[in-house]
Nucleic acid binder design. Sequence first.
DNA 1: AACGTGCGAC
DNA 2: CTGGTCGCACGTTA
Length: 901
Amino acid sequence: MSSAAEKSPANANNDEPQRLLVIDGHSMAFRAFYALPAENFATDTGQHTNAVYGFVSMLIRMIADHDPTHVAVAFDLDTPTFRSEEYEDYKAGRSKTPEEFHGQIDLIQKVMEAMNIPHLSLDGYEADDIIATLAARGQEAGAEVLVVSGDRDAFQLINETTRVLYPKKGVSDIPPMDAEAVEAKYFVRPERYSDLAALVGETADNLPGVPGVGPKTAAKWLNLYGDLAGILENIDAIKGKVGDSLRAHVEDVKRNRRLNRLLTDLDLPVTFEALVLSHPHRDAVEELFDALQFNTLRKRLFDLFGEEEQPVEEEPMPPLELLETEEALRTWFAERAGQTFGLHLATVPVTGAPDDVVGVGFAAEGATAYVNVEQADQHLEEALATVLADAGSAKAVHDFKRAFKLLKERGLGLAGVVDDTMISAYLIQPDRRSHELGDIAQYHLRLTLEAEGESGQLELGLDEQDAAQPAVRAAYVVRLLSHHLAGQVLERGASRLLAEMELPLAVILARMENTGIAIDTERLDELIGDFSKTIDAATQEAYDAIGHEVNLSSPKQLQGVLFDELELPKTKKIKTGYTTDADSLQELLVKTQHPFLVALMAYRDATKLRQTVEGLRKTVADDGRIHTTYAQTVAATGRLSSLNPNLQNIPIRSEEGRRIRDVFVVGEGYETLLTADYSQIEMRIMAHLSGDEGLIQAYRDGEDLHRFVGSHVFDVAPEDVTSEMRSKVKAMSYGLAYGLSSFGLSKQLKISVDEARGLMKDYFSRFGAVRDYLRGVVTQARQDGFTSTIEGRRRYLPDLTSDNRQLREMAERAALNAPIQGSAADIIKRAMLGVDAGLQEAGLSTRMLLQVHDELVFEVAEGELDQVEALVRERMAHAAELAVPLDVQVGIGRSWHDAEH
DNA sequence: AACGTGCGAC
DNA sequence: CTGGTCGCACGTTA
């Protein structure tokens, strides 16, 4: 399925297959109303908009998913219909429409007018009749028909060309019902569905059926006698109680059948052609959506129809010029002075080492060029080096950090980088999972990395062309992308983040990665042995406890042992059965005291540790150091991530695990490792962002925050806060920043949900500003479509308005967390820039090695300790000006373990 | 190869 | 249904 953004507006071209989408307006509005909480959707004037929002959202999605050429919406009127005339209790007993629903139908109709989508209603008839009539007309015109209705009567319309979207509660992606689906569910073909409904009855319409007859019986009869008429002809042949029941209610059945027949011949004032889906009235939509305060929806709507979403007209790529002499290179760049060059490296893989740079592709206005680095003579290479290292020559690259490192391998510098399209794309869409050049070029420009006519065939004869073509093509694409993304980066207020934070940071990260951290490999090997012994012992214990062997690493086999064999109580359900996670095992142990559980948990702990240590062992480079790679465009909040290996999840909480930190040591020629971390940075940010006077003052006074909060929540003097109270508020304080529920808190603290709820209530009654802030974050994010950090880093969360509750609530928790986690990421990034600058200004040899979210690890050169400590403390503490101080804790030692404090 | 489960860190 | 952000290893399934 293509995304909404790719849809072009429909046209009535007769060569194209036509598809009509007909929607039951009231029923969809009601679905939307109940899918979205009314209290979250209201304008400043108090008009509720949840049904309008949900309706338009579903409509956009359906247009995107099904690509109709024609669309219409049918509404009921409040006036009597031929059905209520015949049967006065028709649809009686329906509960009154809620207060908040009032006026929303009118608004939906206004939106339809602005969107240029016809909406129809007809005195004396219901929406279903209009739908049936339109469906018939669509079919006559040869169109495929999709009916969207929450009324099962619509099933009678299903045939080879007509299908029904019948939204089930809580399902946003609705599979269309066709004849087979109806038959599978009701055991009759769609054309017999009305007969079946007449027999069974329809509670939604207050039409009683034959008592004792359900779909199965009705279907059995219909299949036996052909149709309802056939049943009535043979009515005396039907035996048993149900036969008597049928005979007693035959008039009801006949009435039901008259009422549930949809009319397909209404006199509607529109032709099929008038239903053609065309562009919205832009001004009308702007005005209406302003009034409704729909901001993200406006963008989705315009994206759906937007002209700018048409494929970008691709100009032929300028011809490739090979720069083979110093002179040629100088001339090429001199003629284009002042331009921003797209740049891309041609590389070849090398086993067990970084890729090798074999050439450099450049793109400028109307020209592309390639320099073969391997065949370059000294003059050419020097000229190239000059251009690359020239800060005055502006360049756009994709993945600056990688390019910087690869060039460095060749002894080449890289400066003047004004854009990294990978980072720009990330700042625009931090949630995207891939920011690879090919992906974002496809997404933003509809361009592929493969040039026209290049697919597959090798350019024969010239080896270097093989490397040159793709590199130059990439440089060309990078240049276009950079141009295209710059506007969006600016619009989203991310220009400073890019230029002053992420780009300079890339250089620092490249250096950290190249430096790596020294490893005591002997110690590492010892640890592997130690953990292995623990594993062997635990394994044996586990086998003894159950009398046979089993793969303790297989959740599936463990389920067999725990729940079938040992018949322990069932745990939480997961996709593949019942969970065997650590929390659940602990609960099982409390309940059953089974020795197998103890052994299994010991096995889990030890295998996790051995696995970590073995992973580290494999990544120790020839220089005896581990060189992680930092991913700058992965974490949606703005954090870095670390991979190959991940050095941001080295154990510390358990004594056994902490030993692993002993293998990270100071390198030869250096004096010591130094770690510096922010104390409670996320809580401090929460205090700052919420402006809670109590929390702010506590931090200013340098109090033990959790003790302080505990004394207020439990209403005791600070010195009377027990460690149990302290750990409770600590869990709660941190949980709040993650959107923790009272259920989650109760589980974590092993207390009742009531107790957890009470705890949270007390917390918020003392720290009301925190509650107001957290509420405000979600409301604001829903309005804006994004959250922001203190540096203006945005995270877009379209799911905040999803009609899927689970998605929506996940987005709400992400919205709570993103400003806090993201601001902490901003702060430590600023700190890294500051510390790095400070070290250089002071001409120190001390090196920054690692970043672990709120911690930096340094390798301190001989004699620099005092100076470095002062510098690091100062720069970290002043990386941001908050309402509370940023407390920095520093530790020193020969290993990472010893440098903990 | 892709997915699901489980778990380490902050 | 129920705590955010990651990366990685293993077993299982396609």
